[in-house]
């Protein structure tokens, strides 16, 4: 049966539109997003669970972590992944008390819920992220 416009529920239309907007926004933040003060808050609001890798150009272990974050971004599309250069955005790093690099902070509903300091195997980081997807 083909539905016509007259019997569509406006509430369902609104929900569908909201869902479409959310998907478009998430598409904008595919892969590992380069974060700055311009998009940081919007990025956190877009995903229920978001992961931010705080790094700096002089930090050798930060570059070791980068492929792990990229791989996780491919494997966990429901999670937002971003990286923030702490030299360019020291205020954001200070706001979250980032003292050592690399630091990965897991955010849920825009709030930090867990953090991992240093380079860790992919499985460990993945398990920490998954724990916040499940509850």
């Amino acid at each position: 049966m083909v539905s016509n416009g007259a019997d569509r529920d406006p509430e369902i239309d609104r929900l569908l539109e909201a869902k479409a907007r959310e998907l478009i926004k998430k598409m904008k933040y595919r892969g590992v997003v380069e974060l700055s003060r311009e998009n940081f808050d919007d990025f956190l609001k877009t995903f229920r669970v978001a992961v931010v890798d705080f790094w700096a150009t002089w930090c050798a272990p930060c570059f070791m972590l980068e492929p792990i974050i990229k791989r996780l971004a491919l494997e966990m599309p429901e999670v937002g992944f971003g990286r923030l250069n702490t030299e360019e955005e020291p205020e954001i790093a200070a706001k979250y008390y980032v003292m050592s690099l690399p630091t990965v902070i897991i955010f849920k509903d825009g709030e930090p819920v867990d953090q991992v300091v240093g380079v860790v195997p992919k499985k460990i980081l993945q398990d920490r992220i998954k724990a916040h997807l499940e509850d």
Partner: peptide, 26 residues
């Protein structure tokens, strides 16, 4: 690059970088 250490599961260079001075060349 250091990312190759992780991607390719290198053994010597990752150990070495924790024993001596390490940095990033730009």
């Amino acid at each position: 690059g250091y990312g190759d250490f992780t991607e390719c599961d290198l053994e010597v260079l990752p150990r070495l970088m924790n024993m001596v001075e390490r940095g990033v060349l730009e």
